[in-house]
Amino acid sequence: MSDKRDLQQLSVLDREVELTKEFIEAYQKNGHAIVRGAADEQEIAAYREVIAELVKELNTQNVPLNERDTYGKAFIQIGNLWTHSEAVKRFVMAKRFAKIAAELMGVKGVRIYHDQALFKEPGGGHTPWHQDQIYWPLDTDKTITMWMPLVHVSEEVGSMTFASESHKNGFVSKQVISDESNRTLAAYIESKGLDVVNYGAMKAGDATFHAGWTLHSAPNNPTDQMREVMTIIYIADDSIIAEPDSNARKNDLASWFPGLKPGDVAASPINPLVYSRE
């Protein structure tokens, strides 16, 4: 893959998306939102080519789908693609997306935690209910994930499903993504009477945003097409590393905040500042 060739073809993603006060308030109330057309058709088509090619190069999953556990059936997962490609770096570092993230959270600036390609294979299984932030060793609730399909996602596959206002309760369970987390958190959602929202079909370049504590899941992929999604996780630029209280958080501290320790600002060389009002 020639990054020089790709960079010449790719938009710099400098167009800004304007968010209304009401939209931001709704996100902060519900813990999730959708921004239709966050990237346009031409932009996403060009970036999709380089991202999909890189996922193919980096994917090491060779176990047949029917032999994997629930987590393994949910998606092919590859993180920090931006460190492998200048073209993907341009996408992940885009000010357009970072500004949306900062405005939704109500913070002055954001850093990259990491990116993840989440490609759900044809016949791939559901993604169980979970909270992202049980994995993250951070002493803040100012975290947000952008989830953007690189291809059209039909109604039968749909967006992720969110439990509205669940982020307000913070930590619910330490269970990692699994059949157990699905049962426990589905029961929690029912017991609290939380509204469950799915945004349905999404075009390539649409994007959902959700808070780190927002409970969410995703349906299986009954189609014969790969569900190609790129995600970017943002954190407030003054976030502090917390003492990891689980193996999952210890692993994330080592992987995504190299050289840092509890009490440090979460700003390693692979957590660049990508947007600041100042």
Rank of each mutant, 00 (worst) to 15 (best):
D3E: 02
K4P: 00
R5L: 14
Q8Y: 15
G31I: 04
V35Q: 09
R36E: 10
R36C: 01
G37S: 11
A39W: 13
E43N: 01
R48F: 02
R48L: 11
V50T: 09
I51P: 03
E53K: 14
L54R: 00
L54N: 06
T60R: 13
N62G: 14
L65T: 06
D69I: 06
Y71G: 02
G72W: 02
A74C: 11
L81G: 01
H84N: 13
E86V: 08
A87S: 08
K89C: 09
M93I: 11
F97D: 08
A101Q: 08
L104A: 00
V110T: 02
R111Y: 07
H114N: 05
H114Q: 05
A117Q: 07
L118M: 13
F119K: 03
K120F: 00
G124W: 09
H126N: 13
I134R: 02
L138G: 06
D139G: 02
T143L: 12
T145P: 06
T145S: 13
W147M: 06
M148H: 06
L150N: 08
S154E: 13
E155A: 10
E155W: 07
V157C: 10
G158E: 02
T161R: 06
E165D: 12
E165Q: 12
E165F: 08
S166I: 00
K174T: 01
K174I: 10
Q175S: 15
S178N: 05
R183H: 15
L185P: 02
L185V: 01
K192W: 09
D195A: 15
D195C: 12
N198F: 05
N198M: 03
N198G: 14
G200K: 07
A201F: 07
K203A: 14
K203S: 15
K203I: 06
G205A: 11
G205T: 07
D206R: 03
A211H: 09
H216A: 00
P219Y: 07
T223A: 12
D224I: 08
D224R: 11
V229H: 00
I233V: 15
Y234T: 10
I240W: 07
I240N: 12
I241R: 04
D245Y: 07
R249C: 07
W256G: 03
F257Y: 08
K261H: 13
V265I: 15
P272Q: 05
E278D: 15
